[in-house]
Design a protein around this nucleic acid. Structure first.
Lengths: 191, 191
DNA sequence: ACTGTTGATGACAGGCGCTGACATCACCGG
DNA sequence: CCGGTGATGTCAGCGCCTGTCATCAACAGT
């Protein structure tokens, strides 16, 4: 095959997900992934900053969609704009539910990968907050709204992945927001 | 001094914070920390799972305080109980503001450390949610309330560390919660 | 067809993080 | 004085990740 077989990056990403699922994250070396993808370990690290990053290649796409959606939103309360952006971006993940589930299972199996996912979420929150500010939302409000929206997205995503019924990701996020409104509004419930 | 100089763990934790602050996290090797603490690199890794964990030795204490506070709370809405628990646990950090600031600066300077902190926050959220469930809060509500409270704590902590006025951590958390209530309640603001 | 440039890859060396295995030493109870 | 216990030191080694240089495909200009 020589060098220059196309889409080395994609091959490595697929090989990594397969191997992490087959033998586990720790039991897979970077050289293993490179071998399966038909490249060298060195090439692997040229494309991905580290062994974890290979699982998060699509995260910038999600972030771009969320930021764009916030920028283009018609108006409304900041929290609605932020959550609406995640609902609007949900199809990106919904289109590849199988892939999302496999990936989520691998991540759930190892703490290092959860750390990286949390970092991506945090970055996403910062980007969303910036986008809200861009619309004129005051800094503290933007921060709280963005962080809350990302938190609700995380919960919704978790439930969407675990759900056996056909509830959509968008629906899960919407429900989580409704939950929060209930919790934030109701003055007293149980003890 | 031979072996058995007391408080090796504490010495390593202090040495690590100093060195990370002096030369940076990456420029500090585990052997450097061990040297300054008067032990071996191997001993360092017997006490701390990895090079990052040495900065998070007190996180279990915070978690215990939050969980206890949730368990002992008098009653009220889940979100109030959760946020109240963080306010109640705030003195643990407020007592050592200098240390908290130095530590926060070090963490802010390197992504790996931010990842670890986010993981601790996530663990804290799970523990808080469990504690809420223990009180009879339904699972989805517990999850949303706990995650939201941790998010607000994170924002409050960030502002407390950055603040030049004397605003307390507890006050910052309370303000963030008030912000969220405003955002969740108000139907429409800007565009 | 020849050539220079560009960019991705291969090959190699090496530092650092982290672990397993075994020896050593301080302390404690008998 | 002695054996047990637990923390530490010592050593070897794998895997992650990086710097460096050579190699090779593709492309543009001549």
């Amino acid at each position: 095959m020589g060098r220059w077989e196309p889409d080395a990056r994609g091959r490595m990403a697929r090989a990594a997900l397969e191997l992490y699922a087959e033998r586990g994250y720790e039991q897979t070396t970077a050289a293993d992934i490179a071998d399966r993808a038909g490249v060298t370990e060195r090439t692997f690290f040229r494309h991905f900053a580290d062994k974890r990053e290979v699982l998060f290649d699509g995260s910038s796409q999600l972030q771009a969609a969320v930021v764009a959606s916030i920028a283009e939103a018609d108006g409304g309360a900041p929290l609605d704009v932020a959550c609406g952006a995640f609902v609007a971006a949900a199809p990106i993940l919904e289109e590849r539910r199988d892939h999302a589930r496999r990936r989520a299972a691998v991540i759930a199996a190892h703490t290092s990968l959860q750390e990286r996912e949390l970092l991506k979420m945090s970055t996403l929150a910062t980007a969303a907050a910036d986008a809200l500010r861009e619309r004129g939302v005051r800094t503290p409000d933007a921060q709280v709204a963005a962080q809350t929206a990302v938190g609700l997205f995380g919960i919704g995503f978790e439930r969407w992945v675990a759900a056996d019924d056909g509830t959509s990701l968008a629906e899960q996020i919407t429900r989580a927001l409704a939950d929060l409104r209930q919790l934030a509004g109701a003055p007293a419930t149980s003890g």
